[in-house]
Amino acid sequence: MTTTTTPAPPATPTPAAPRRPRRDITPASVTGRAVRYALLLFFLIVVLMPAYVLLVTSFKSGSEIGVTGQWNLPQRWTTASWVKAWDALGPSFVRTFQLAVPVALISSFIGAANGFVLSRWRFPGADAVFTLILFGMFIPYQAVMIPLREIVTTIGVPPGIPTLTLVHVIYGIPICTLIFRNYYATTVPEEIIEAGRVDGAGLLRTFAWIILPVSMPGFVVTVIWQFTSAWNDYLFAIFLSNTRNGPITIALNALAGAQSPDYAASMAGALITSLPTLFVYVVLGRWFIGGLMAGSVKS
């Protein structure tokens, strides 16, 4: 296998750093280490800066809120803005779960089936077909947006979450197919499939009894990926839904983009919006690792 392309979904690559033969401690290596840690810490702080501003501002009130003094800690901590932000975002928060969970599950199943066929139950021209599927992942969605509005209306899909679910599932097929194809190609030996075939196992039986049981790492990757992209999407949401029936990014934009925005509530809202995806990344990240390593960048 050459290194095959892959938008490896975000992930914490696994295996701990390999242990190297210990070398003698020299002044040079001490300095090197100090520089390395200094750099790592510096970037750690830089990366955390925006999160810090979000957090402290969301607990401020009244005249403390403002661009100047944004780095100061609140003199008086209050959760009022969190309450206000939740009032504004609550309904769309629930709706976004109704969107992102089905999208993650359905896309993953479709991706698993496609990936299996394209890697282990191939048909003539499978590679060409795969390339055509893959292209769908990279297109700028503006290039389909104008007729997309019309076609979902024509098909009769109700506006809002149902429309967005359909759209995210469809445009999620390429990446899920890619992840599973690469995953199966590297983790499921061809021989197992062949052995099954000799025993007379058909496509669906092979998929259900041989493939699916070992697919968990792949599912973790696609579920996280699709959940995150459906949750964070703004482009489809702004074109195909509105504040009344749309996901949380629309509601947050309405809260934060208002004419006289309540900055503390906007920042609390931005944090509320980010919590589910952060949870997924930080907590589930570990399970994600194996799948990523097997399914993506692979030498």
Partner: peptide, 16 residues
């Protein structure tokens, strides 16, 4: 920590 911004939407991080 380096990876976490990836989980945040541009709409949310744009606010800050």
């Amino acid at each position: 920590v380096y990876l976490f911004p990836m989980a945040v939407s541009f709409v949310a991080s744009g606010v800050v």
